[in-house]
């Protein structure tokens, strides 16, 4: 970037900076606005009289004596038992990530170390499965789950999410394992290891970067899922996203909307943290499939 010919003219620099600022506002402002508004009363956040009320919190001060109030959070977490949904989300995410990585690693490793034609067809099948809208699968699950009394429980939703997650996990881990030289396990096998021992003692110690990246995406799938969790879990076992949808279903009475706003902010916070800590991995994961092709 040192050559003077490459220097951008001032007008272009200004335009590009302005555009970046515009995009940053577009991308981030809604979240900060909602975060700020979640500490207000409904008539401030959805202000009919004067939009600046949402910033100054005029009516919040009149109601609660301070311009900030945790009433929405109290209502959501304590009154409506959002903590239960948060706990359920935690359980679902942990088990989905662990199970899906365990079986996905074995499968992805096998795919990367085999040169037969069926590997290609298995990957194609996985690609087709990845494209299936999840809600269409749900209508296939319901009759047997009702018949066998499996509907409504967390383990059912976990297994379903693991399965739905497999195609993507396989593709991603397959390409990661392809990058680990095959000579490593070949030489272990020459030394008398079985294929599994080679995997256990040679591959597992070096596979973690790829596995962590894949795990992040499994986590996001489980955390963000709406179609499966809302259709397959009963009221007790609901995770956060269907719980928020349920808040919306109950009438928009005063206060109730603020419960939903507080719940939305609470559910966004862990994702903020996740992107902050794992930005590099997320970017590399998103581009892994694309840049090669």
């Amino acid at each position: 970037m040192s050559s003077s010919a490459r220097q951008a003219p001032v007008s272009l620099k200004v335009a590009s900076t302005l555009f970046i600022v515009f995009w940053l506002v577009l991308a981030a402002f809604p979240f900060f606005w909602t975060l700020w508004g979640s500490f207000k009363v409904e008539l401030d956040f959805f202000s009919i009289a004067d939009w600046t009320n949402a910033i100054t919190g005029k009516l919040t001060e009149e109601t609660h004596g301070s311009t900030f109030t945790g009433a929405g959070y109290y209502g959501a977490w304590v009154q409506e038992e959002f903590w239960r949904a948060a706990l359920n989300t935690g359980i679902v995410c942990v088990f989905v990530v662990v199970t899906s990585l365990t079986i996905g690693t074995l499968g992805g490793y096998a795919l990367s170390r085999s040169n037969y034609n069926y590997v290609f067809w298995l990957l194609i099948a996985a690609l087709i499965f990845r494209a299936m809208p999840q809600i269409t699968l749900v209508s296939g699950y319901l009759p047997p789950f009702f018949a066998w009394n499996l509907w409504g429980y967390l383990p059912t939703a976990i297994i379903v999410l693991v399965a739905i997650n497999q195609p993507f996990t396989l593709w991603m881990l397959h390409s990661f394992f392809k990058k680990i030289p095959i000579d490593l396990d070949e030489s272990a096998k020459v030394d008398g290891c079985t294929q599994f021992q080679a995997f256990r003692y040679v591959i597992i110690p070096v596979m973690w970067p790829g596995v962590i990246t894949t795990g992040l995406f499994s986590f996001l799938l489980a955390y963000n899922d709406f179609a499966v969790t809302t259709m397959l879990l009963n009221e007790q076992n609901r995770t956060m996203v269907p719980k928020i949808a349920a808040f919306l279903g109950t009438t928009y009475t005063e206060g109730n909307v603020m419960f939903a706003v507080a719940a939305v902010v609470s559910a966004t916070a862990p994702l903020f943290l996740l992107v902050m800590l794992f930005q590099r991995q997320i970017v590399s994961g998103l581009t892994a499939g694309a840049v090669k092709g």
Partner: peptide
């Protein structure tokens, strides 16, 4: 910039 740009995509679609 990349951090803030990722947010709309990472955050749960419903949320």
């Amino acid at each position: 910039v990349i951090f803030f740009s990722l947010l709309p995509m990472i955050v749960t679609p419903l949320i």
